[in-house]
């Protein structure tokens, strides 16, 4: 139900990581974002992916994919970014 606000948190967090990475090694093009979504996190990975797609529109992350690994716990973790080499 609150997947859209989570998607916006996610975008903020990714932008933060991009900024840090850019400062260290120059440009960065994100292809995909990897998450771990626990069964007890109360979050639907599909709804989050849809909200992410909508929230990305018009930002530098438009067109990037969200892939979620389903886990058993309550975690909701940003595992990492797949970027151009």
């Amino acid at each position: 139900m609150h997947e859209l606000s989570l998607a916006m948190n996610l975008i903020e967090a990714i932008e933060e990581v991009i900024e840090q990475e850019c400062a260290q090694r120059g440009g960065l093009r994100v292809r995909a974002v990897r998450l771990r979504v626990g069964a007890l996190s109360g979050v639907s990975a599909d709804a989050l992916a849809f909200a992410y797609e909508c929230a990305c529109e018009g930002t530098g992350l438009a067109g990037t994919r969200l892939t979620a690994e389903a886990t058993a716990g309550s975690e909701l973790e940003i595992v990492g970014l797949e970027v151009d080499p």
Binding site: L6, N9, L10, E12, A13, V17, E21, L28, R31, A32, L35, E75, L76, E77, I78, V79, G80, L81, E82, V83, D84, P85
Partner: peptide, 16 residues
Amino acid sequence: VAPARIVEVRRSLLKA
């Protein structure tokens, strides 16, 4: 397509 480089993040989405 060159394989992607992985940037590790490893943090909770609800960290803030």
